[in-house]
């Protein structure tokens, strides 16, 4: 069985986002780029599954749609333990464009399980996984919190509001992973970093595909008015203000 993990290249989560050229573009000066945190958890789980020899996993591959700057992030994925990496060489215009490129690759190079994070920490659209499911006409498991094997059968949990569902299905499918899928993302070890240099990172041309949407402008949130401090000995004042001034109680 082969697993493909979709990787989005995003600014480190501690980044303070700034824009340039009249709020038309992200100011990337000083930004550290990382694997999208949910994609990193998906990759970690895929590698854990492969490492356990009792599971029928032969290969873990990562894929990204992006320009050459993404190679460093893909090398990190290889250092963590992916067997190979694919980069489709294009500016990722919108989620539809990205999913269409990845789906085209999967149609030519079949995989059994495709994983993607539930959202990317940059554009928060939660779209690529579901779109892949539709492009491929596969089921897609939203909010997947567990993926394992029970003998030959897959053991899959999905979070639903107020609980969990345990699902029965057979590959191929898209798993859209939520926190919980792996305990902690794996940090690359020195040996992994050395090995990553020898692993294949294949760059493929993009197919012709029109994006359906575009970002025309960014905006910074407005600074909040100053915080009203309440004495810890006069807490009834706080409750009173929440009722009468903020009107939220």
């Amino acid at each position: 069985m082969k697993i493909l993990v979709c990787i989005s290249n995003v600014p480190d989560t501690t980044t303070k986002i700034k824009f340039k050229e009249g709020n038309k573009q992200i100011d990337d000066a000083g930004i550290q780029w990382i694997i999208n945190p949910w994609d990193e958890l998906a990759l970690t789980r895929a590698i854990e599954l492969k490492e356990d020899a009792s599971n029928p996993i032969d290969e873990v591959c990562v894929i990204n749609v992006g320009e050459a700057m993404c190679d460093a992030t893909l090398r990190k994925a290889l250092a963590i333990g992916a067997d190979k990496a694919i980069r489709i060489d294009a500016n990722p215009l919108d989620a539809y464009f990205v999913a269409g490129q990845i789906a085209d690759y999967i149609k030519k190079t079949p995989y059994d399980i495709v994983l993607s994070g539930i959202e990317s920490s940059d554009y928060n659209s939660s779209s690529v996984g579901g779109m892949l499911g539709e492009f491929l006409d596969w089921p897609a498991i939203s909010s997947m919190t567990q993926l394992g094997f029970d003998g030959d059968e897959l053991n899959i949990h999905r979070a639903i509001p107020g609980g969990n569902q345990i699902l029965q299905l057979t590959p191929p499918f898209v798993g859209i992973v939520q926190k919980g899928i792996a305990k902690e993302p794996r940090i690359p070890a020195m040996r992994g970093i050395m090995m990553a240099r020898k692993k294949p990172l294949e760059v493929l041309p993009a197919i012709e595909l029109k994006a359906l949407s575009q970002i025309v402008e960014f905006e910074q949130p407005q600074a909040k008015a100053s915080c009203k401090m309440i004495d810890a000995e006069q807490l009834d004042e706080l409750i009173h203000l929440l009722k009468s001034e903020a009107k939220v109680l």
Partner: peptide
């Protein structure tokens, strides 16, 4: 923009060739 909307809208976008703005 909740669990169900997030799960359905991307599929709908591909089916209908309709651009999606989320959240």
């Amino acid at each position: 923009d909740n669990n169900s909307g997030k799960a359905i809208s991307p599929r709908l976008s591909v089916k209908l060739q309709a651009g999606l703005a989320a959240a």
